[in-house]
Design a protein around this nucleic acid. Sequence first.
DNA 1: TCACTGATCGTCT
DNA 2: GACGATCAGTGAG
Length: 200
Amino acid sequence: MRRLRRDALPVESTALAQFLIGTYLVSESPAGRTVLRIVETEAYLPGDAAAHSYRGETPRNRSLFLSAGHAYVYFIYGMYYCVNVSSEAAGVGAGVLLRAGEPLVGLGLMRERRPRAARARDLCRGPGRLATALGIGPEHDGLDLTAPGALWLAAAVESPRPIATSPRIGITQEADRILRYYERRSPFASGSRRQNGESR
DNA sequence: TCACTGATCGTCT
DNA sequence: GACGATCAGTGAG
């Protein structure tokens, strides 16, 4: 696995959201290593009413204002964590939500963390599931994902596959904007068949 | 496969 | 005091 360098990352949210598809997210913990291949992302832009950074910097969202390539981990619905990659220059609040991945390494450990997931395709299918499977929590908030550590990004190895787009999932503000990106026909992407444009 | 619901708590109004 | 970038379980088609 070859670590992504910061200077390889596009410093613009929609470009980064597409760039990250096909790259790898590596989690190192005392229990072992888990790795997934990112297949679905969403961009949350500067000035975007759906973005956690919209109302300015707070203790909770400060990681969104770090330079591109840092982790923003937040707690939602009283039970789940979700992971973003900060996506603009330092001082600008924006991020790319990692929504789903194809589990590649450490499937046994992922199953221990997600005992209710019956099928491998459901281990990292959804932002809360992805974070749980990789053991991601508040201790990962603010980490530099281009530096050695407990959580980092590795460069894509396989040739790019077709990327489809759709509105973002689960939001009420700016709900019509096309800022979700996913690998077309990937069984590991979240969303319903209809949301993934596969109806008919 | 879709639609709906309850669980659960940090954050900001 | 309300709500949220979610998920698992249930029941119907």
